[in-house]
Design a protein around this nucleic acid. Structure first.
Lengths: 343, 343
DNA sequence: CTGAAAGCGCTTACAG
DNA sequence: CTGAAAGCGCTTACAG
C-alpha cells in the first residue's frame, strides 16, 4: 500500500541517473530546464516524498530539537510549559526543524538517566524547560549536545539560559503599587521554593528599598511547602493594603480567601499577580499582573538553540525576557498621583 | 566538540569488525560473552550513542508519529489538545516512538497543503487532533500513511477515529437531572457548530424522549456564532430548572450570568457541564460534569496508530471512549429519590 | 549538462 | 564465534 517512491524510481522511468533527479528536485545547478521540469512533474505524479532520514545520515543532523519538561510540571491543571512547547514547535518550523516533546519522569530524574532522545541521537539540541534537580543538571552537562535552560537557571552550571525577567517584573509592579499610595505591602510566596519565586521576591524588596520602606517579615506570607504543595495562606494580624503574589493562581486563591473573610478587593486590599495566565481573568476582580511573554521566550530559545546547533561553541549566557504589566481591576489607588505613569 | 563515535570507531580500537560491534550492542547471537562485555564497556567509555537515522533508513521507518492540531484550537486559554498531545507523547514512548507536534496553520488548511511532516517523510503515521475542514479531510485521505482522527469524525471519510462518547455522556447526565426531579431542562450550545456539540445535544434529546418529555425549542440556547466565537447567552423568559451545557467553560459563564441576574445555583437553577476541565472547579458552585478521559483517549489513539503502522490494512473503525459523571455541587435534587442511583 | 563512484552509520544474509 | 559484502536513499566531489 505504501508507495515509497525513491529518486532512483523516478530516474529509471526517465532513463536518467538518480544524481540528476536529486539535482532537479533540489533546484541545483546542472540540469537542463527541460529535464528538470519533466522530473518534477513525474515526481509529483508518482507521489514522491523526500526521505529525510537519508539526509539526516549524510548531514549528521536529525533536524529535531528535544524539549524536555520534568514530569512534575505536567499536572492536569498545568499547561504553561505545554504552551511554551507549542510556541517552540511553531518557531522551529521556520528553521525547517521539528520539536520532540520529552517528559522527564521523576524516576529518570532521580536515577540520572539520559533521555532516550539523547542516547538514540534523535535530536540536534535539547531545551530543558523547567527546573530540574541539581544532580540532574550535572547529567545534562554531560550530554554532548547543544543545550539550553528555559525558564530557570543555575549558578553552577555554565549552560546558557533564558528566563523571564522575574526580578524586574516584580520590581515594576511593586513600584506601581507604591506610586498608587500603598505603603504596607505583603509578598506572598515561598522564597526558598524556586529561583523564579525568589527573584520575584527580590524585585519586590528592591522596590521597597528604593522607596525607603522596610521589609516587614510579618508580611512575607508562605503559600507552599518545601515540595511545592500549596498550603492555606495565613493572613497577618495587621493587614497590609496590598499583596504582591508570586503568581496569578495564588493571587486568585488569595482573592477568594479575602472575599470569604469579608475583605473586599480592591476596596480593602489590593492584590497583584504574575504570569497573566488563565487565573488572572477568572478571579474576581480581574487581576493586575505581570504578563510573561511566552512567545518571546520561545522565539528567543529557538533562535539561541539553532545558533548553537550550527556553532557548538556559541555562548549566549543568561538572557532575560521582559514581561509587561497588564492593568486590570485589582488595585486601588490610595492617592491622587497618576498611577499609570511610568517610573 | 561533538564526539560522534560510530560502531566502526569502537571496532577499530578493538581490532574487530563493525558487524561484531553491532551484534554485541544489540545483544544479538554470535558474539562471545567475553568480547561482548569488552565492546559494551568501551562503547560506554567512548560515549557511543546509537544513530537512529541509520536505523530509520534501513527499516524505512522514522519511529515518529505526527500529531496535527489545527491552529484554531490553540488559543492562549485553550490547552485541552495540548494535554492530549502530552499524553500521546507519553504513550508513544512505551513503543519506542516519538511524537512530533504539528500545528496546522489556517493558511495551510485553506490551501490544502500537505504538512511538512508528511512531505519530508518524517513520520510513520499521523493523528489529526481536532476537526479540520471537509476539504482538508480529503487532503488527509490522499496522504499515503496510516492516519487517525482524534476527537472528531466524518461520515464521508473512511478514516478511523476515536472520540469521547459525547452522546452517551450527555444522555447519562441528563438522565441524572431527570432522576433528580427536573422536568424543564435547557440545552446550551450551538448544535450546528461541531459534531461533539451536536452529539451531546442528541444525547440530551434521547434522555428527554425516553422520559416522555418534549423538546422545547425555547430551551435550546445558543452560545456561539458560526465561527465558534462565544456570544452572550440569552436566558429564556420561562426559566427551566436545569441547564445542560455543552462544555464546562460555557457552564462557568452561565453560572456567572445566572448569579449576576439574581438566580442562585443550584437553589434556583441547576447547571451541568461537560469535560471536567479547569472551569469545572473554578466556577461557583463547582460543577457536576462529565469527565472526558484524556488519558484513555491518548492510550487508545496510540495503540490504534501503532497497529496501523505495523499493518497498514488494519481498520479500527470509530472507537468511543466513555466518560464518567463527576458529582459536585451544581445540581439541586427536587425530589426524594436517591439521585446517585444509576439508571 | 549528465552520471559513475564513494560514503553517511547501521544491519542482514551469508560464508568461513 | 567472526567478518566481508551489499544495501537502505540520498548527496558530494569529480570526471566526461
Amino acid at each position: 500500500m505504501r508507495t515509497n517512491v525513491t529518486m532512483q524510481d523516478i530516474a529509471n522511468k526517465l532513463g536518467v541517473s538518480s544524481v540528476t533527479v536529486s539535482k532537479a528536485l533540489s533546484d541545483k545547478e546542472g540540469v537542463s530546464d527541460n529535464l528538470k521540469i519533466k522530473i518534477k512533474k513525474l515526481a509529483t505524479e508518482m507521489g514522491y516524498r523526500y526521505n529525510s532520514a537519508a539526509k539526516s545520515i549524510k548531514d549528521g543532523l536529525s533536524y529535531n530539537i528535544g524539549v524536555m519538561i520534568p514530569q512534575r510540571f505536567t499536572g492536569p491543571n498545568e499547561s504553561f510549559y505545554l504552551k511554551v512547547y507549542q510556541q517552540i514547535a511553531l518557531h522551529l518550523d521556520s528553521y525547517g526543524y521539528y520539536g520532540i516533546l520529552n517528559i522527564l519522569s521523576n524516576e529518570d530524574e532521580q536515577l540520572l538517566n539520559f533521555p532516550r532522545i539523547y542516547s538514540e541521537n534523535k535530536v540536534d539540541g535539547i531545551i530543558i524547560l523547567g527546573q530540574v534537580s541539581k544532580q540532574y543538571i550535572e547529567t545534562v552537562q554531560n550530554m554532548d549536545l547543544p543545550k539550553l535552560f528555559l525558564d530557570f537557571y543555575d549558578e553552577h552550571a555554565a549552560i546558557d539560559s533564558i528566563v523571564t525577567d522575574n526580578f524586574y517584573g516584580a520590581y515594576e509592579i511593586t513600584n506601581y503599587l507604591i506610586r498608587s499610595g500603598h505603603r504596607e505591602i505583603a509578598y506572598v510566596g515561598n522564597i526558598y521554593s524556586t529561583s523564579s519565586i525568589q527573584d520575584r521576591f527580590l524585585g519586590y524588596y528592591k522596590s521597597l528599598l528604593e522607596h525607603g520602606l522596610t521589609l516587614d517579615h510579618q508580611l512575607l506570607l508562605n503559600d507552599r511547602d518545601e515540595n511545592g504543595k500549596y498550603i492555606d495562606i495565613e493572613l497577618p494580624e495587621d493587614m497590609p493594603t496590598a499583596f504582591v503574589c508570586n503568581c496569578d493562581q495564588i493571587a486568585f486563591e488569595l482573592c477568594d480567601r479575602l472575599n470569604s473573610k469579608g475583605f473586599k478587593v480592591p476596596e480593602d486590599c489590593s492584590v497583584v499577580g504574575f504570569d497573566n495566565d488563565i487565573y488572572a481573568t477568572l478571579s474576581t476582580p480581574q487581576l493586575t499582573t505581570v504578563e510573561v511573554d511566552i512567545d518571546q521566550m520561545a522565539r528567543t530559545a529557538v533562535k539561541s538553540i539553532m545558533e548553537k546547533v550550527s556553532n557548538p561553541n556559541r555562548q549566549t549566557g543568561r538572557i532575560l525576557v521582559q514581561g509587561k504589566i497588564i492593568f486590570r481591576d485589582s488595585v486601588r489607588k490610595l492617592n491622587d498621583e497618576s498611577a499609570t505613569t511610568n517610573d
